[in-house]
Each structure stands twice: as C-alpha cells, then as structure tokens.
C-alpha cells in the first residue's frame, strides 16, 4: 500500500487545542512539514508566544521554549547566539508581535538576526477573548472596541511587513495567507524558504500569515475566510516586501 498523506514528523501526536475552523493548525502543519522536508527537526529550536499558540511547545516536535508576551525575538536572539548551528523560529500573534513586542520585533529585524519569525495576523486578540489588536481593521468590532475601531482615536491597522521593509538589513519579508489551499501552498513555500535561509545563516526571515478567528469574529469558518479575503487582504496586501537575495542578484547582473 502506498502512503499518499500522513501526519508530519514536525508535529507531535498531541491533539491541537484550537477552536473549530481556526487556522493555527494549518500554520503549525506547514511549519512542521517544512522542518521535516529540510531534515532540521533535531536542530531546530522553536519559541512559543503568549496567546492562543502558547501551547505550541506541545505541538512542534523540536526543542521548544515558552517565553514572556512579546519577547520572542529577544529570546530568539539569545538562543541563536548561544547555538549558532541551530535553526531558531518564533511563532507569534498580532498582539504579541505588533503591540507589546513591537520593539523586540523591529530591533531583531534591524540586526538581521538569523531567525525566522512566523506572524499570525487575525486582527484580534484570541486567547484573552477578542480584544482589539494593532491589526484590527477600521470600524471592526472587538470587545475593547465595542462600537468598532475608531482609527481617529486608536490608530489604524498596523502593516508590520511594510514597516519592517523600510529597514536596511532584514533579509526576507513576505505576507501570505492561509485562506485557501492555493494560498496555503504558497505559505508553505515561504515558510520553507525562511527556515532554509536560516540554515544558510542569511538572517532575518519574516512570514506574516493572514488568518481568521471564527470564534471571536462570531462567524462560521468559511464565512470568516470569505470575510478575511474581502476585508483583510485589501488592507494587508499579499506579496514580498523585502528580498535581499533578489536585490543582490539584480545588483550582480
């Protein structure tokens, strides 16, 4: 009998705790598959954030550490300097990465730390129950923006890729989505490229993944994906925002 699909060795057998329709499981799977395909599971160190993915240390089958809210890129900096031969990734949500951890994110990118940052953007704080995130859209309702986000008062949705791409040193910055099988395949390619880039010690790789939160958005999973396509993608356009490899190739030709 031929096996055509199986669970990736990059994930443990632990049952994912995520809500029905949540895309964290998809993001976990493509990272696990990328680790497996690159044969780096035994030399990868993953960093779990504070947020819905806090239990990621139970799910990825590599060495893992769970760290303070927003500090994953700083912890990753310490790890990658102590273990330069390991591949180090962080897995962070929008509150963790773009609010309380803004400084750690920006400076790790600016130093071109040899780490991969996987950023799950679903425009809302999930674990604490649907509060406003830095990426919450204008007029979008959240438990701490019950009348809709007033951008005059609370600022607009932060586009982290665009922000980081203004820096000189970061190696690779891209935004992908998890909203359709086609998008997921593209996302996996980006994840694999990021981890492979770390194996070659190229520096900072940032992969933002547009995701959904059916529970806190109060939508059925399919409706949530449709809503994300219609409302989030125009605000957070997909694409590559910085690619030093391509820049260097162009300069050389």
């Amino acid at each position: 009998m031929k096996i055509v699909a199986k669970r990736t060795a990059g994930l443990t057998d632990a049952r994912l705790h995520y809500c029905p329709g949540c895309l964290h499981g998809v993001a976990h799977r493509i990272i696990g598959e990328a680790m497996e395909e690159l044969s780096i599971i035994d030399r990868t160190i993953g960093i779990a954030p504070v947020g819905c993915a806090v239990f990621a240390y139970n799910f990825f089958s590599c060495d893992m550490i769970q760290v303070p809210h927003g500090r994953a890129p700083a912890v990753a900096t310490g790890i990658r300097r102590a273990r330069p031969d390991c591949v180090v990734f962080t897995y962070q949500g929008d509150g963790d990465l773009a609010a309380i951890g803004t400084a750690e994110t920006v400076h790790a990118a600016n130093r071109n730390e040899n780490i991969s940052v996987f950023f799950i953007n679903n425009a809302v704080y999930g674990m604490t129950g649907g509060q406003m995130a830095p990426t919450t859209l204008a007029n979008m309702k959240a438990t701490t923006a019950p009348y809709g986000r007033d951008v005059e008062d609370t600022g607009g949705p932060m586009r982290v890729c665009e922000l980081l791409a203004s820096l000189e040193k970061p190696y690779f910055i891209t935004r992908v989505s998890l909203l359709s099988p086609k998008d997921i395949l593209k996302a996996k390619k980006a994840v694999k490229r990021a981890l492979a880039g770390n194996m070659e010690k190229k520096g900072f790789h940032f992969v933002e993944m547009i995701s959904t939160c059916p529970t806190n958005w109060g939508m059925e999973p399919l409706k949530a994906r449709q809503w994300a396509r219609e409302s989030m993608i125009p605000v957070f356009p997909l694409g590559v925002f910085k690619d030093r490899e391509a820049e260097e190739k162009e300069a050389a030709s």
Binding site: I45, I65, V67, P68, R71, A74, V75, A76, T77, G78, I79, R80, R81, A82, R83, E104
Partner: peptide
C-alpha cells in the same frame, strides 16, 4: 530576555 534565551541553551 536575550539572557533568558542564552541561559535556556
């Protein structure tokens, strides 16, 4: 937190 990371190694 960098110390946390290095210490963890």
């Amino acid at each position: 937190n960098m110390v946390l990371g290095a210490a963890a190694c």
